[in-house]
Design a protein around this nucleic acid. Structure first.
Lengths: 198, 198
DNA sequence: GTCTATAACCAGATAGAC
DNA sequence: GTCTATCTGGTTATAGAC
């Protein structure tokens, strides 16, 4: 029962975090959404930051699960090139954001960021996601599929950032494209660039 | 004197906004930074939102000034292709952000966003920047310099977003690259993409 | 216009009964 | 563990003297 309740809390936090952002999300709103009193929330999580860290860790767990699925798929046949795996993860993150399931990347200055890096559960998962994606990036570089002038670090950070790209929301707000089209346009602009090929 | 004081206020707001973000920026901090009492601030600006709107409008004014410089340069000889003008604006925005002079793009959900679109001064400037950049985008498309599969809207939004790209800060935090290198890497990844050319 | 002082409010966190 | 009620700190905004 306790596990189920905490899962329900994390689910609510995840949605509210994606919807309103960390600062605008109030603990009162979380309690109301879960349907319990605020004081009860604090029996499960020590602080608002702990709530957010749990939700962010859950997001990373879903990312790891998706990575696992893609790795299983890659064993083929046919074998899937590493670049395609990276694109698939970008698509997954963008779709999650459009579906309102992806809390936005915390800014460096944010008070949230300090709390997250201090949270072991979050940090460990972030490290693992980075390592798994890093392996694909190195493979794609070895394949000659990535621009050799760009450091792997930049590619990794860019993938994280594109999962929260505000351009997604702006394009949706324009009302001219459906979600699948938006994702394909963004993936294309991310991997192939804005400029025309030579 | 009044003009000078208000300019000093806007300068402080701009820096604090870039440094801490809208929510974390307190009116007390602005007053302390300017060196006047908080009540005096409210004689100049009606609300915190009005403070932010003035600072954001000032950013757009600087962007318009930069656009004007680039247009003058374009008359050549040699004439400058529109794509190069767009890259120059991306560089300008990224450099401004690294210099701590660029407040971050307000998220759609943000309370700030509503205030900004309700502010005539901000809205008019945003429209003009969009039109001026839009003209370059259309020209670059006509030149065949932009990927024809991408709508102009996406290119415009992407340029706005890249000026506030969190990847800039992440790369700087890695400590491995100087600011000029970071900007060139980001411009390259934005226009030419992560993937290797064909 | 600038100041000191304070009002009004809201959000995170806690006390203590059950 | 859950609740109601409250505390505490901080933030926006204003009053009123000078």
């Amino acid at each position: 029962m306790l596990q189920a309740r905490e899962a329900a809390i994390v689910t609510s936090v995840n949605r509210l975090l994606a919807e309103k952002g960390y600062d605008a999300m109030t603990v009162d709103a979380v309690a109301a959404d879960v349907g319990i009193a605020k004081a009860s929330l604090y029996k499960h999580f020590a602080s608002k930051e702990a709530l957010a860290a749990a939700a962010m860790a859950a997001v990373l767990d879903r990312a790891l699960a998706r990575i696992g699925e893609l790795e299983a798929r890659a064993d083929g046949p046919p074998p899937v090139p590493a670049l395609e795996q990276l694109k698939a993860m970008a698509r997954w993150a963008m779709q999650a954001q459009l579906a309102g399931e992806m809390p936005t990347l915390p800014a460096e200055n944010s008070s949230l960021r300090q709390a997250l890096v201090a949270d072991r559960g979050y940090r460990d998962r972030l490290l693992e996601v980075s390592e798994r994606l890093g392996a694909w990036i190195e493979q794609a570089q070895a394949d000659g599929a990535l621009n050799p002038r760009l450091p792997g670090e930049l590619v990794l950070y860019t993938l994280f950032a594109r999962g929260c790209d505000p351009v997604l929301g702006l394009l949706r707000a324009s009302g001219q494209y459906d979600d699948d089209t938006i994702v394909e346009l963004l993936v294309s602009s991310c991997f192939d660039g804005l400029a025309a090929g030579p």
